[in-house]
Amino acid sequence: MIVGIPRALYYHSYSYLWKTFFDNLKVEYIISPKTNKDILKKGKILSTDETCLPAKIYLGHIDYLKDKCDYVLVPRYLGVDKINLSCIKFNSMYDIVKNTFKNIKTIDYNIDYIKGCKIKNEFIKMGKKLGFKSNVASEAFDKSYKEFNNYRMHEFELQESKVVNSELKKVLILSHSYNIEDEMIGKKISNILISNDIEVILSSKFISNEDKSTNISKTLYWDSSRQILNSLEYYKNRVDGIILLTSFPCGNDCLVNELIIRKLKNYKIVNIVIDEVNASAGLVTRLESFIDIINGITI
């Protein structure tokens, strides 16, 4: 039995948890490749034109996996409570997948505060579906959840040491993990920055139990946007510039980025929007100019 893991959307936040969970249960899995032109093209065909780039990419990954495994992992994520919700489009992703790919076999878990679904119970259910007894699945989950948290802490500390020790100019990329880590969205930007001798700091690596996002907005619903605001509060005075990275047409970011730009004065900020059009000339020009601004080029 093989589980297919799409390398998109929640993968970029939870891959470590998923992989260790399946490893601990000794379930075989395959992961779709890094997003490439073929995957994007497939995703574009399968989606309606109004959907955002990461959602299109997600469907492309599912399409890649659908004939290569027994089950595709498609979690449904509504939110953990009333004020920590997922974006409405991603919330519906599970149903979109079920409707787009008829007869697709999925394994899933459902984080839905209305039904009171706890992550552990959901993983146990998932384990049962794969044929494991609940105590086995429960044990596997506990172990992998611990490893997952250690891993995140490790990543955060690694980044912290970069912020403290690096001699290079530092730029914070402020975005959702599914943008930052995607090969055709955030990676493009990180690569350009790195080749220009910039230390890249990622908002997705930040972890904290405290919620400081209320400094900027008290009434934000989306947990991913809160993560962005929290990391902004943490890093903003320790970096040389901030890039707001959005994939077209993200409704949440439209609101949140505008808020950030209005509330933060005297910071070097640039707003970069990535869409499915692949020309990178404009992107390179924007980033290079921003790097010049950070370096303070003058006559």
């Binding site: 070097k268 010049d292 303070g296």
Partner: peptide, 12 residues
């Protein structure tokens, strides 16, 4: 003060 501080470009 002789340093570029901000810019914008038309998008698509």
């Amino acid at each position: 003060n002789g340093v570029v501080v901000d810019y914008a470009m038309n998008t698509i």
